[in-house]
Design a protein around this nucleic acid. Sequence first.
DNA 1: ATGCGTTGTCAACGCTTGTTGGCCTACACT
DNA 2: AGTGTAGGCCAACAAGCGTTGACAACGCAT
Lengths: 183, 183
Amino acid sequence: MRRTSQDAKDAILAAARERFAADGYDRATIRSIAADAMIDPAMVMRYFGSKEKLFAAAADFDLRLPDLSAVPADRVGTTLAAHLIRRWEEDDGLMILMRAGVTHQDAAERMRQIFAGQLGPVAGRLAGDPAEGARRAGLVATQALGLALCRYVIHLPPVVALTPEEIVDWLGPTFQRYLTGAS
Amino acid sequence: MRRTSQDAKDAILAAARERFAADGYDRATIRSIAADAMIDPAMVMRYFGSKEKLFAAAADFDLRLPDLSAVPADRVGTTLAAHLIRRWEEDDGLMILMRAGVTHQDAAERMRQIFAGQLGPVAGRLAGDPAEGARRAGLVATQALGLALCRYVIHLPPVVALTPEEIVDWLGPTFQRYLTGAS
DNA sequence: ATGCGTTGTCAACGCTTGTTGGCCTACACT
DNA sequence: AGTGTAGGCCAACAAGCGTTGACAACGCAT
């Protein structure tokens, strides 16, 4: 039994996710992705059409936010912080978007959709007003993405040294204020 | 009177700063920088030696932090927030580092030096302990760089819509807690 | 006017990139 | 056995990159 085309696609996609997350859009080449997947570069084109389409397939991501209005009102900040940290470490999808979003238009657009479409409604439900929810979601995004940038991309030593528990302790109150505090 | 070499260098450096800030390291090509400076690409090489060296010359940046121990203790957060916003808008140096730091090693290293060497000591003076200062500086960096990422790079609409005053009002207390709050 | 050093131009190099088309190879089915 | 089809490989393409070296044009000193 030879490898089925689905296996090849899976292997390519897995390699692509790793490379895009580690190197960004430009430096992650079709050739290097193909080498990681132990396959010919031409196969990548056959199965995904172009580098753009491969990236679109690899950059799929969902925050999988819990329903924050179901947790105690004074716990939304820490709950969100704990969830985001976990989500970040188990899925490299956000790393892909961060590394690519800096130079790549589509990736930036995806990022906007994620925070407007996933975090926005959750914040809006807490604020009781969609427009205000968007503002709150934006503020949360600045702190959340900033942590990811310093910890996983820039590798700022003091931020890398923080334990997940410390991060929750420090960022939880910040999220709490951004989500529920007075404007 | 022909153009002096200093004029050419200045023109190249200005064009390089704009291109690196707008496009990142990889997409900012020597050719495009030279075209912006209305000069031949070969001149760029003559005056700066290589793309790496040109980047090093363009990525020079100083936070120019004020002495935070000279302001009222309950004002350090808002003072820092106001200063960083101003610094960000008047100098594209940090944009260069942010756009490049994601894929370029040297830029990430510069970023680490800036926050460890400039913000760290200031925070250390406030905390009365250099090691603790590094931690506090790291936390501040997550929020400060996250804002810049969302506002100037990703262009998250709700974050772009914030006025400088609103940003100071929201981020000031965060910086205050990161710098002087209980650990 | 002659010479020289600086400023600028031009063409090309070697390399890497995304992308394409043709050609094998192995399996499933008749 | 023969054949069709799907998986895979190879070589090449055009374009763009950083970089190089040779050569022309200019201004100032002598």
